[in-house]
Design a protein around this nucleic acid. Structure first.
Length: 502
RNA sequence: GGUCCUGUGGCCGAGUGGCUAGGCAGAGCUCUGCAAAAGCUUCUACAGCGGUUCGAAUCCGCUCGGGACCUCCA
């Protein structure tokens, strides 16, 4: 098999993936800020890196997947006033900050489960690692790359850039920014006067009296700067250097850039070797985000309760929708596109289920060598495409080319023995591995009860009998009334029937 | 203004120097008691203008359009 190649944002090119320790992978992905409910835009990185995680597991790696929960208060700049998101909401909703954080953490976990994302190996919280963050900040100060001002601590970007450029690690190496250019920006921001330099960023912020979330530190009561938590936690659980750091492209600058600077000062090494960034979900060509006022929350998506939605969309539809695009491309949301995904997934899933029921224990004759070879090739390419920077879109395209073959065998348009038993088994195994284990798709009928199946079987039997007697009144009544309930009965070739739920 | 990305058919999207993914929608046909499903066939493409090349949608340049980020929003 070819080697796994990933697009590394650090080098801006595809590189062969080689873990630091053979057989093991350490992966850190920036998690949610639990000051509110996640929206569709947030879903993309978590699904994207769930696929990466699952694929690495498929390749046989032992993966430690760390995804943080940001539950410490950060500042949100709204209008002219900077306020703490979590503490502000907490007052409005009359909740304890940690109560609010718990509520949204639970909601986040619920959404991840709906998407069938595997839980990460470790899900550390920022509030649970205040000590580690303080220790790290102290080290940065001791090394002379940070300074204290009025109870806050700032990272000295210019000094860092000067010293580390010499080692080929200038500030801006990840996002392609040049510090000198950035210093020329004229944009005015609040609370800049404490900083020696515009480009400096906060490691620790002095907490104003109204700030609810606060911790004692060597510099007074305050709270950690936004970037330091990821550096502290990735270092703690994955070591000074680890394999993969993931997140959305919008995090590349400044967040990941600052992480690199902080960690490099402390550990003298670039924290992650491969930086993977997924692109945004857009809506009408615009990034979905709070500041654009165009967010669709996940709960709204699943229930259809948002003015932009023409219907509810199942979490698996969203997952499939995301998989149909390469993770580094933008993905434009739209009802038409979501509906297309819904139908496409249904078609794929039904063929997949039919395939798994085929009996592959038959003889080994190959009835149609050409078709057999074509199927083999399409299946072999699953891995080839994934090895090439996780190209799920191409894998799905191949799967859809296999659908008519599967349906053809099922409906007897294609002879039973057109494919050799070996090829059929290969097809079944690989489809299972990719559809379920790697893509994490699951059937919507999976949790139908035995009782429902029993009742349906009864109705199917009655309908079959009616059809034999040419009693179409009865057979149509069963089919039509079930349809009104959202259950589709389908006559299969050979007199069998199956059903699907809306 | 700076840095970077992007412009593919009705919609969503792969991809690439010549063999022109895939899904959904549309059209026709087959199967079917009817329908649905399924199968087969099929129509619309690579923003515009130049250049490189035997050949470009794919490389280069320009123009136009869209987007992300630009330090305390995570």
């Amino acid at each position: 098999m070819s080697q796994l190649k990933v697009h590394n944002s650090l080098t801006r090119q595809k590189e062969v993936f080689e873990p630091i320790v053979p057989g093991y992978v350490g992966m850190y992905v920036c998690g949610p800020t639990v000051s509110g409910e996640s929206h569709l835009g947030h879903a993309r990185p978590f699904i994207t890196f769930d696929i990466v995680y699952r694929y690495l597991l498929h390749l046989g790696y032992r993966v430690r997947y760390v995804r943080n929960i940001t539950d410490a208060g950060h500042f949100e700049e709204e209008g002219r006033e900077a306020e703490d998101k979590i503490s502000k909401k907490a007052v409005i909703e009359k909740m304890e900050p940690m109560e609010l954080v718990q509520k949204y953490t639970n909601l986040f976990h619920w959404a991840m489960q709906e998407f069938n994302n595997l839980p990460p190996s470790i899900e550390p919280t920022a509030t649970g690692h205040i000590v580690e963050q303080i220790v790290m900040i102290e080290k940065i100060i001791a090394d002379g790359y940070a300074y204290v001002a009025n109870g806050s601590v700032y990272f000295d970007v210019e000094k860092y850039n000067t010293d580390f450029s010499a080692q080929g690690k200038p500030y801006g190496m990840l996002s392609g920014r040049v510090l000198e250019d950035m210093l020329e920006t004229t944009r005015e921001l609040d609370n800049q006067e404490e900083k020696r330099n515009k480009a400096d960023f906060a490691l620790w912020k002095n907490a104003p009296p109204e700030h609810i979330m606060r911790w004692q530190s060597p510099w007074g009561e305050g709270f950690p700067g936004w970037h330091i938590e990821c550096s502290a936690m990735s270092n703690k659980y994955l070591g000074s250097q680890f394999d993969i750091h993931g997140g959305g492209m919008d995090l590349q600058f400044p967040h990941h850039e600052c992480e690199i600077a902080q960690s490099t000062v402390c550990n003298h090494v670039t924290p992650a070797r491969y930086w993977l960034h997924n692109n945004m979900i857009t809506i009408n060509g615009r990034k979905m985000g709070k500041s654009y006022n165009n967010v669709i929350k996940l709960s709204e998506l699943f229930t259809g309760s948002h003015p932009l939605l023409e219907q509810a969309y199942h979490p698996m539809t969203i997952r499939f929708f995301i998989l149909q695009t390469h993770y580094r491309s933008t993905l434009d949301f739209g009802n038409e596109a979501l509906k297309a995904a819904e139908k496409g997934l249904k078609r794929l899933w039904e063929a997949y289920e039919a395939l798994q029921k085929f009996d592959a224990s038959g003889n080994n004759a190959t009835g149609d060598a050409e078709l057999d070879a074509k199927v083999r090739k399409l299946v072999e390419q699953f891995e080839e495409f994934m090895q090439d920077d996780f190209n799920t879109a191409k894998v799905l395209a191949n799967m859809f080319e296999l659908v008519p073959v599967i349906n053809g065998i099922k409906d007897k348009h294609i002879a039973d023995h057109a494919l050799s038993a070996e090829t059929l088994r290969y097809l079944q195994t690989q489809m299972k591995a990719f559809v379920e284990d790697i893509f994490g798709l699951k059937g919507e009928n999976a949790n139908n009860s035995d009782k429902l199946n029993g009742v349906m079987q009864l109705l199917i039997n009655i309908r079959k009998e009616a059809k034999v007697k040419k009693d179409y009144m009865t057979s149509d009544k069963i089919r039509n009334e079930l349809l009104a309930l959202g259950i589709h009965l389908k006559d299969e070739k050979g007199g069998e029937m199956s059903y699907t739920l809306d």
